[in-house]
Design a protein around this nucleic acid. Structure first.
Lengths: 129, 129, 129, 129
DNA sequence: GTGGTCTAGACCACG
DNA sequence: GTGGTCTAGACCACA
């Protein structure tokens, strides 16, 4: 599991980390119960500050993607709070609106857009089979 | 064309403005050549800082959604730089990756996701016909 | 609204702050929409670091007790996520179990315990009437 | 008397142990004079560090819930220091304040809260009769 | 001036 | 050695 961080990006580093870990889980690169490096370890590996990694882990913990095990450290988890699904869908709808509007105006066809989605989905489902 | 701003959102005001204008264009609420309120006008209407509106217009101009004439004011445009389409698709792919990963892990089916896309697309296509 | 912090306590300072603000809301000392001091302001008032206050505010925001308004700053809110109520009750039940066990073993009567609860409730309800 | 430890809880292991033993006494699962497993025994049973069990026992001894004899081992006791009752009540009041405030603000009625208390009390009183 | 982010260095509780 | 907490000082985006 290698992280690719863009320090020049306007996306905060801690967000890039948490994002990539979620994607890693979806792709099957990270499996349930797997141990993530300690905050200090990952920080020194990447060459960033411990607190930045800590914040990323905090977000993941909050959302349920990892759990902090007192003996084993930070473990990948998929214990999502189901009741948050509808909140997620609402946020997703908002997030998509602008992108779709822009794609539409650029003349990108509906099927091109959905194909993009399906490709990504397939990447993830491939991790399962 | 009414803007609905959420001052408690984590999305910056200027971004909310530019987003809603793009969506407005896609929906057909704003048509090519239509004049948008002046920076001062919109700022006082909404009750926000002039610089915020200015920044929103700047982003829209940069992307080609509006053109700014000294005399005619701010006009809706759809003069997109075609060569940026593939850049847009790349950025879109990145933007969607995390959302799709999360949706996938939450058990949201591919077809549910694409249906959401299609619904939005239909909203926009309706504006044209 | 004055905060009483115990720096020697084993309860983290940021938790003491967030706790006292919640209690303040319940007592009516803080009302919906009221503006809280900025992180820097409160930090310098109390004589602690900005980040500690920031963490307290972050927790309150997460739980819905405050919102970050882009124009007005940090505002008291009571927009709680209703679906978390049953989680709260579960956590409460766990929290109470040990205290009740200990009270019971110390010979504190059921009614003494519930009287304590009722007194606190009255403090809060007094803030409303 | 089986301990159920959650290594992913934010409550320290030693605290979980001491808590559950106090609750066990209240429920009548553990009776006065009963012998608890030795530090080494319990540690190996649960698969945790000896020091962790030791710390739990230390807390229990400190509060008077167990006595430690060199020969007889760790014995359940209820030799509470009576003069600490008022301290306990004070601490309890502080502990409950935030929970009650939050419950109040969430619209949980006073009687719902006290019913929760009474149910727990009944669990313990059932252990006696 | 506000909150948001990052860094650096430190101490403590825990296991 | 782990995560949790606190401090101090800095830069940036935002309004």
């Amino acid at each position: 599991m290698l992280l690719h961080l863009e320090f020049e990006s306007n996306i905060p580093i801690y967000k890039q980390i948490s994002n990539q870990i979620v994607v890693g889980i979806a792709k099957g690169d990270l499996v349930e119960g797997e141990e993530l490096p300690s905050v200090r370890q990952m920080a020194s590996d990447i060459g960033i500050n411990m607190h930045t990694v800590n914040k990323a882990y905090g977000i993941l913990k909050q959302a349920g993607w990892v759990t902090i095990h007192r003996k084993k450290g930070v473990l990948v988890s998929t214990n999502l709070k189901a009741q948050e699904d509808y909140l997620f869908l609402g946020a997703l709808r908002d997030l998509l609106e602008v992108s779709i509007a822009e794609a539409f105006l650029r003349g990108i066809k509906k099927c091109e857009f959905t194909k993009l989605i399906e490709e990504k989905y397939n990447e993830f489902e491939g991790g399962i089979s």
